[in-house]
Simulated assay, not measured.
Amino acid sequence: MVGLGALLIEVGDTAQLEVVAPLLSTDALQVHAGSPVRIERWGGPGVLQGRVRAVEPAAFTKVSALGVEEQRVNVLIDLTSPPAQWAALGDGYRVVARVITREAQDVTLVPVSALFPLPSGAAAGVAASLEAENAEPRMAVFVVDGGRVRRTPVVLQARGSTHAWVKSGLDAGAQVVVYPPAALVEGARVKVRTP
């Protein structure tokens, strides 16, 4: 006995798999058709390549693991790696998709954990030097200089989940303090530790 409308069989072409990535709607605004994608942690060796085919026009509400309602948007991704590399993938498998929204060569990156908001009024001294760039520093880092820290205002070009792209204010190769405690002040002596 089969109930009316019961699904009996689902037919699909496993050689034409696509990845459906439910991104936060705020992140999906940065994604466009044609954006390159890296498929990681899919269960096989290496990283697979893909390309965004479409960003769906409607969002939906999903409750996160922490119980927070989030607006998500499905992003449809075509696999561009040779099919022999991902032949073991199947319908409903879990993958991690990294959509590349911006690429640049020779940029200065800093861990997001090193950034902190610049206190109001602290940017006055550096605003003149950055005036030509029409950018006002709103963030800062503590740079280690001769065993002491120096608060350094920075202008960010872009920010990701783990690193930020520094447009100006920080020299490449500078050592910065990650997770600076609130008690850390300008000129404090520090000791560099390697994790």
Rank of each mutant, 00 (worst) to 15 (best):
M1K: 07
G3F: 02
G5Q: 06
G5R: 10
A6Y: 04
L7A: 13
L7C: 08
V11N: 01
V11F: 14
D13G: 10
T14Y: 09
L17W: 09
V20S: 13
L23R: 12
L24E: 13
S25R: 14
T26A: 14
A28F: 04
L29E: 06
Q30N: 07
Q30C: 01
I39C: 10
I39H: 05
E40F: 02
W42S: 10
W42R: 10
G43M: 12
G43N: 05
P45M: 09
G46Y: 06
R51V: 15
R51P: 01
V52K: 07
A54G: 12
P57T: 09
P57H: 05
A58L: 12
A59S: 15
F60I: 00
F60R: 10
T61H: 11
V63I: 15
V63N: 01
L66H: 06
G67C: 06
Q71R: 15
R72L: 10
N74Y: 02
L76I: 09
L76Y: 04
L76K: 05
I77M: 03
I77E: 01
L79C: 13
T80I: 12
A84V: 12
A84H: 06
Q85D: 15
W86C: 12
G92P: 07
A97C: 05
R98A: 13
V99A: 08
V99F: 01
R102H: 06
E103H: 04
E103Y: 03
D106A: 13
V107D: 03
T108F: 02
L109D: 03
V112K: 05
V112Q: 11
V112R: 04
S113T: 15
S113P: 00
G121I: 02
G121C: 05
G121S: 11
A122N: 01
A124V: 14
V126H: 03
A127S: 14
L130R: 05
A132W: 14
A135I: 00
E136L: 15
P137H: 04
R138F: 05
F142D: 08
F142N: 01
F142L: 03
F142K: 02
V143D: 09
D145E: 15
G146S: 13
G146I: 04
G147A: 08
R148M: 02
T152G: 00
T152F: 01
P153I: 02
P153V: 07
Q157G: 14
T162P: 03
A164H: 03
V166E: 04
S168Q: 09
G169M: 08
G169P: 07
G169Q: 06
A172V: 05
G173K: 08
A174C: 10
Q175Y: 04
V177K: 06
A182Y: 08
L184I: 11
E186C: 02
E186F: 01
A188N: 11
V190M: 09
K191P: 00
K191V: 11
K191I: 01
R193S: 08
R193W: 09
